[in-house]
């Protein structure tokens, strides 16, 4: 029986005068890939940013590993064991691949070395372009670097925002394969518009619509529910 790793209860987030997240409830079980779905502007990215503390929740609670992290700053939340892969990948363009890893590495112990070796086997391109500036990588390589960098630290949870965005189908397949291997080692929250990717990787799903959680359940249920997919995801 999986335990709850992350729980959002009645979370509200405002950005300037806009009320983006409205009483959002969201739960992530250890060892699973939980997919956040919804149309553009539904509040998926804001949910991840609120978990990371980049957009502070105005009310509600966010509990991670039994600890309330709602009011913590982003760097403290990261240190609790949450890795973040933003929509724009967050690569430092002037830093090399190696420096992009080093700048975010919180420890230099055996565990980190083991994860680094593992992730470089998973993404051999990163090893090949080790001394190349991050800005010169292709879109797919940047995505791999962003995911790998988040994984290398001893994180219990990875928040990955739209990893398929802007990538060619063949690269999307590679990313799916990589996250599929990664999910054996860590828990993942995936924001994804690409339902093919979401259905391939997801164990559980939450659907957001206009900042409100409208549905959640197991991914296999959603795959079968044509009406739900049509209504909230625009999939005919």
């Amino acid at each position: 029986m999986e335990s709850t790793l992350l729980k959002l209860e009645q979370v509200n987030t405002h950005i300037d005068q806009f009320h983006i997240l409205q009483n959002v409830d969201f739960e992530v079980k250890s060892g699973e890939v939980t997919v956040l779905l919804g149309r553009n502007g539904a509040g998926k990215t804001t949910t991840l940013r609120t978990i990371m503390g980049l957009n502070g929740a105005t009310s509600g609670s966010i509990v991670f590993k039994g600890e309330n992290i709602t009011k913590l700053p982003p760097y403290e939340i990261a240190k609790k064991g949450i890795g973040y892969v933003p929509e724009d990948q967050g690569i430092f363009y002037d830093l090399t691949v190696e420096e992009n890893f080093r700048v975010g590495m919180r420890k230099d112990d055996d565990g980190t070395k083991e994860r680094m070796e593992w992730v470089l086997e998973l993404f051999p391109d990163l090893k090949k372009f080790w001394r190349k500036p991050g800005g010169q990588l292709s879109g797919g390589q940047k995505q791999m670097l962003s995911i790998a960098r988040a994984y290398v630290n001893d994180n219990d949870l990875l928040l990955i925002d739209e990893p398929s965005k802007g990538l060619a189908p063949v690269i999307v397949e590679k990313v799916i394969e990589s996250i599929d291997k990664m999910k054996e080692r860590t828990t993942v929250v995936l924001v994804e518009q690409n339902f093919y990717m979401a259905s391939k990787l997801g164990d559980a799903f939450f659907i957001l619509d206009d900042g409100i959680t409208v549905h959640h359940g197991r991914m296999e249920q959603l795959i079968r529910d044509e009406e739900l997919k049509r209504k909230y995801l625009g999939i005919a």
Partner: peptide, 13 residues
């Protein structure tokens, strides 16, 4: 380059 990302990596900027 990116103040937000460096914080999300655990650095107190």
């Amino acid at each position: 380059m990116d103040r937000e990302m460096i914080q999300a990596l655990g650095v107190n900027i």
